[in-house]
Amino acid sequence: MYASKGVVFHFAVDSNVVITVYKEKDNAGSKAKHLLIDAYNIVQKNANEALSKTETFSAELDEELRWLSEELKRTRSKAKRMALQARINAVQMRVDELPTESLEIKRKVTRYARGVAAYV
């Protein structure tokens, strides 16, 4: 959104397309604020869902790590031990990446919140 001299322009994010224009006499400020707040609520809802999925995925990976560790203790075959250790390393790397992804999602929501706060 861009506002200037009583006119609010609503642009598409990924293209150079004007979605709509509000004039001051159409109570543009109120409509624009509602539009921004609704968009922010959608972003926040999507972020919360993504964070929830990340937590669930992290729990699943922890369970897989426990299972792989138990299998590694039980197995005697060198080839199977090497395969299990490789899988453990891969899963552990993925577990280590999840907090960074969660932080990036939270930063994105914060950036949107600052934008909304600056306008409203």
Rank of each mutant, 00 (worst) to 15 (best):
V7S: 01
V7N: 02
V8K: 00
F11G: 13
A12V: 08
V13T: 12
V13P: 03
D14Y: 11
D14G: 15
S15K: 14
V17T: 15
V21R: 13
V21H: 01
Y22W: 15
Y22G: 02
Y22F: 15
E24Y: 11
K25L: 12
K25V: 15
A28R: 04
S30A: 12
K31S: 02
H34T: 11
L35G: 10
I37R: 05
I37Q: 08
D38R: 05
I42Q: 11
V43G: 01
V43T: 09
N46K: 14
A47D: 02
A47C: 04
N48M: 11
E49Q: 07
A50F: 00
L51H: 00
K53P: 00
F57H: 10
S58N: 05
D62C: 06
L65I: 12
W67L: 13
W67A: 13
L68R: 04
S69G: 08
S69A: 09
E70V: 11
L72K: 10
S77R: 04
S77P: 00
K80I: 10
R81M: 04
R81K: 14
M82A: 15
A83P: 03
L84N: 02
L84Q: 03
L84K: 03
A86L: 10
A86M: 07
R87W: 02
R87P: 01
I88T: 04
A90L: 09
M93H: 14
M93T: 15
V95Q: 01
L98G: 04
T100G: 13
S102R: 13
I105G: 03
R107L: 07
R107Y: 03
K108H: 11
K108I: 07
R111S: 06
R111M: 07
Y112N: 07
R114I: 08
R114G: 05
G115S: 05
A118N: 09
A118C: 02
